[in-house]
Computed example of a mutant assay.
Amino acid sequence: MPALQQPLHTGTAPSAPAWPRVLLLVLAVGQVISSLASQAAGTELTTPDRPGEPPIVPISWAFSIWGVIELLSLLYAVWALPDRRPDKRLRSELAVPLSIVFAGFSCWLVAAEVEPVWTTVVVFAVMVAGLLKALQIALRSRAAIAKWPRPARWLIWWTIGIYSGWSTMAIWINLTTSMAASGAPVSGTWGISGQLAVLAGATATAVVIVRWTNGLVPYTLAACWALTTAALGAADAGETLLAAAAAAGLCITAATAVHARRHFRAPAPRP
């Protein structure tokens, strides 16, 4: 009897599902639409210099960075969709946490109107968790991403980096505004002390992630943007101590990034 034929193993990985990348594109478009709708409606979140805000809330024009984030997210989602692009499985893997982030953004805009006190903090926490997971996947896959076309490499690192840098700082500010909305003081000894603690937490977060990412430039720039505009917001409110603390956080974050990049690029010592 003829021997039973064994199935051929070509070594090719199973095809990655396309639905995460399709969903990512839909949600990236959703980010833009929800943001435009929020601005057109003149909702609470898009109203600058709201009364009762803590002094460390970034100056009003700082939030224009959301437009950059939305555009980068959309461009990356468009590029990542076709099957013919390199590393389909990696793109689908990245699409899962990024879809959570993009969906969270639209939910955050709604939560800011419906129940802005603590729901926004919870939504932001979920977004940050998704961004950190996407960063973990991208850092683990540095070698594969390095083989992508230059525009694609630029898109993935800048999308995740700027989104993560701004969001990991903004969640601290969001925490402060939620506490203020709950009745916590924004001035006096307790109010200033609480905001100093928030700035310390934001700076520590930035330092940890900068070190983890080996000084990823987009992350560093976005985190420094947040701290710079927080310093300007505090200075505009006449709170010199808070402005100085935010500026100190900026300097610490930038110095950490320079050190991390030098260490990352340093040649291995010869035996």
Rank of each mutant, 00 (worst) to 15 (best):
F264A: 12
A103E: 10
E70T: 08
T46P: 07
A184W: 14
T176C: 10
A206G: 05
C251E: 02
A237S: 08
I59C: 00
A144G: 04
T159W: 06
A134W: 04
F102M: 14
L90M: 10
L8P: 00
T43S: 12
V123G: 04
P151V: 14
F264H: 12
A77E: 00
S187T: 15
D49N: 15
A254K: 01
Q136F: 14
A111E: 07
H9C: 13
L45I: 04
A170P: 09
A257L: 07
M127I: 01
A77H: 06
I65G: 10
V29C: 02
G238V: 15
G130L: 02
A245T: 05
A28P: 01
A243I: 02
S167V: 05
Q5N: 15
W108P: 05
A266H: 15
S167T: 01
P2G: 06
L232C: 06
P20S: 05
A62C: 01
L221Q: 10
M179P: 05
G104H: 09
E44K: 00
T120Q: 14
T10Q: 05
F102N: 11
G42A: 00
V121L: 14
R84T: 01
Q6L: 10
G52Y: 02
R84G: 07
T240L: 14
L36I: 11
A231C: 11
H9M: 12
A237F: 02
V126K: 10
R262V: 07
R21H: 02
K88C: 01
T177M: 09
M1Q: 08
V101P: 09
A103Q: 14
R153D: 14
P55F: 09
Q39N: 10
E93W: 13
P51S: 13
P14A: 07
Q136Y: 13
T46Q: 04
R262G: 05
A125M: 07
G194H: 14
V126S: 10
W172C: 04
A222V: 14
V101E: 05
S164N: 11
S34H: 03
M179A: 04
L131H: 12
A254P: 00
T240H: 12
L72K: 00
P82W: 00
R84E: 03
V78A: 03
V210E: 00
G191F: 13
L45N: 04
A230F: 14
L94N: 09
T256G: 12
I209E: 08
A268V: 01
L155V: 02
L155F: 02
G161L: 00
S15Q: 05
R265N: 09
I56G: 04
A77L: 01
I100M: 03
S34N: 03
V96K: 11
V110P: 04
I209H: 09
K133A: 14
L25Q: 04
W61V: 05
E53A: 06
W172Q: 03
P86A: 06
P86W: 09
S15R: 08
G194Q: 12
G130W: 06
L131S: 10
Q39I: 03
S64Q: 12
W172Y: 12
R140W: 04
L24D: 01
A143F: 08
G188D: 09
T120L: 12
A248Y: 08
A37R: 07
W108V: 03
E239W: 09
A40E: 07
